[in-house]
């Protein structure tokens, strides 16, 4: 059985890395005695697959992982959030769980993410101006590194939406395929002078039957979740 879990990463724990979070999950599964399927081979690993890495320091209410349960393990999936959250650090809470039937890993199926970003020290007027310029531009070229090679990429088409919210945060939806655009890269693309501030992922989006939806929607609208941001 394949189960998808949606979780948050808020507060101090946001300073841990993607790999750190992977280790927390492995320990959590053992602590609650949820048996996972293992890979074959010399050093078997539990079958766990994470979605797109959140940058270290970023917060999120829309993190996901897929787990493959051991043969015969049939937990009450609806009860998994309550079972797993206490075994995870403060700030990481399991928000929802669902059995997965569709094919494709999270990395393959997620097409875009919605972010709320701040740029340290930038006022709203400046941001409004930069946003308008970026949206009006046909192309936005940044140089970025990949596998040690520096390349100039036009990232304009990866910006699916961009706006300044009332509280001065930048709201954006950024494509993740083929080569996605990261929050810090977006800031560089619209103004190299902007200093990265807070990063908050609120949604990851997939296409299901031609419609845009979340891998697991929350019972409450996700916009309610930012209240939890200062929880720890």
């Amino acid at each position: 059985m394949r189960v998808r879990l949606r979780f948050s990463k808020l507060g101090k724990v946001r300073w841990t890395s993607h790999r750190d979070v992977a280790r927390m999950w492995e320990r959590a599964f053992r602590r609650v005695d949820l048996r996972l399927a293992y890979t074959e081979g010399f050093s078997p690993r539990p079958k766990v697959s994470f979605g797109l890495a959140l940058p270290t320091g970023g917060e999120s209410v829309a993190e996901y992982l897929d787990i493959e349960l051991a043969h015969g393990e049939q937990p009450d999936v609806a009860a998994l959030p309550g079972r797993l959250s206490p075994a995870l650090p403060v700030g990481i809470d399991v928000l929802a769980a669902a059995v997965v039937h569709e094919k494709g890993s999270l990395q393959e199926i997620v097409t875009s993410c919605r972010w709320e970003l701040s740029a340290a020290g930038a006022d709203a007027d400046l941001l409004e101006e930069r946003v308008a310029q970026a949206l009006a531009a046909d192309s936005l070229v940044i140089t970025r590194e990949r596998k040690g090679q520096s390349a100039a990429d036009d990232v304009r088409s990866a910006i699916l939406s961009l706006a300044v919210l009332d509280d001065g945060l930048l709201e954006c939806e950024l494509a993740t395929l083929t080569r996605g655009l990261r929050p810090n890269e977006l800031l560089r693309a619209i103004d190299p002078q902007l200093e990265p501030g807070t990063v908050h992922r609120t949604h990851q989006w997939i296409q299901r039957d031609g419609a845009k939806c979340e891998p697991i929607p929350l019972p409450l609208p996700a916009t309610a979740a930012p209240h939890a941001r200062r929880a720890s």
Partner: peptide, 20 residues
């Protein structure tokens, strides 16, 4: 903490300083 946290984006391995 309010004075420490803004430094964490500037350093390697920030999780060294968070406790938890």
């Amino acid at each position: 903490w309010p004075r420490i946290e803004p430094l964490l984006a500037k350093v390697q391995k920030p999780a060294r300083y968070i406790g938890c």
